[in-house]
Design a protein around this nucleic acid. Structure first.
Length: 339
DNA sequence: GACTCGTGGTG
DNA sequence: TCACCAAGAGT
């Protein structure tokens, strides 16, 4: 795990303190020595005293059993295709926004062959406002590749998955682990953060998954494949629910007793946050153009696209980019989603 | 490795 | 309010 840089104190979550409810209990008076920190009582389990790697995974799995969200793509009857779709939708998009879109998507296109049989523009339209519509286009291309290369069956090995459009280092491993219950380190931003804090003692992980990250997580996984798959999703769930980027709930964390970041006094991160404005950017104008095209069943005249944004130069850049990306087709002076 | 690519939730 | 940030991938 790459050692994190330090960010300015402003963006760092305050070192977690006892919640009011724990204060009340403390006021009643804990007499046992060492019981003053009754935040420990709120933790369902604690990691083993030796702090071994296996203990972290097992502690996390026990915590996961009690605290995991009931998400449809995690259910035992979820198909590999449905898991793959969920993973692509979840790339940079919150669970709360993905869930309804995923349900509609799976009802309409229950297999790769169903999706591949429809034009890519329909995938882009159904993607609606999930963001990054190139993901929809790649997911459609992914379905077509699965049909062509794998007889419509989602492949179960990482290398074959990695070769599919829109499937990168994270998603390939996530599908192999969660859909096929294989033993692979699955490293996303949540896992990088959990391991950076609990093991390395730094506030956050790196921006991308490195081979070193994969090795650091691999040694934490149980040997058993099914248990490794459960541990992997438990790491992610802890990062999503407890060990969050902004306001971690350390008093509720099952790893609090072994957390290196906590032991070190919650040293801040110095990772430079890049100021990202959205409104008025080329990306924003792309979004405006795509919204018009998604909403129309007929070819859209250029004048209608011209109306979405006053800056003609910016409009032209955005539209050119969309054409280059294959998200938009041009016919004479009209535009459509790709057919 | 830095940069691009949407949209909305949140503290 | 507003800056951060959310299960990354591709170039």
């Amino acid at each position: 795990m790459r050692i994190a840089r330090y960010e300015n104190a402003q963006t760092v979550a305050p070192a977690p303190s006892a919640a009011p409810v724990t204060r009340r209990r403390a006021a009643k008076g804990a007499t046992r020595a060492g019981a003053a920190d009754d935040t420990a009582r709120e933790r369902p389990t604690t990691a083993g005293a030796d702090g071994g790697a296996g203990d972290i995974a097992r502690t996390l799995m026990r915590w996961y059993d009690e605290n995991a969200r009931d998400l449809p793509w995690r259910r035992p009857d979820a198909s590999p295709w449905s898991v793959l779709v969920s993973e692509v939708m979840l790339q940079q998009t919150q669970v709360s926004r993905v869930e309804p879109a995923w349900k509609r998507w799976m009802e309409r296109w229950p297999t790769p062959a169903h999706l591949a049989a429809d034009p890519p523009g329909e995938a882009i339209r159904a993607w609606d406002r999930l963001g990054y519509p190139r993901r929809a286009l790649r997911l459609h291309a992914c379905a077509a590749a699965i049909v062509e290369r794998h007889d419509g069956v989602v492949p179960d090995d990482v290398e074959a998955l990695l070769a599919l459009p829109g499937i990168g280092i994270y998603t390939a491993r996530a599908v192999a682990a969660f859909a096929f219950r294989q033993r692979h380190p699955v490293v996303d931003t949540n896992v990088r953060r959990v391991v950076a804090r609990s093991v390395a003692g730094t506030a956050d992980g790196g921006a991308n998954t490195t081979p070193a990250d994969l090795r650091a997580v691999e040694v934490l996984l149980p040997e058993d494949h099914e248990e490794a798959a459960r541990a992997s999703i438990a790491f992610m769930e802890l990062g999503a629910l407890i060990c969050t980027s902004r306001a971690p709930r350390c008093p509720e964390c099952p790893l609090a007793d072994v957390c290196a970041w906590r032991r070190a006094g919650f040293p801040p991160s110095d990772s430079a946050k890049r100021t990202q404005q959205y409104h008025g950017t080329d990306r924003y104008v792309r979004g405006l153009l795509m919204a018009v095209l998604r909403a129309s069943d007929d070819p859209v005249p250029a004048e209608r696209l011209d109306a979405v944004w006053p800056d003609a130069d910016q409009r032209r850049r955005a539209l050119a980019g969309l054409l280059t990306d294959g998200l938009v087709n041009q016919r004479h002076d009209t535009y459509t989603l790709p057919g």
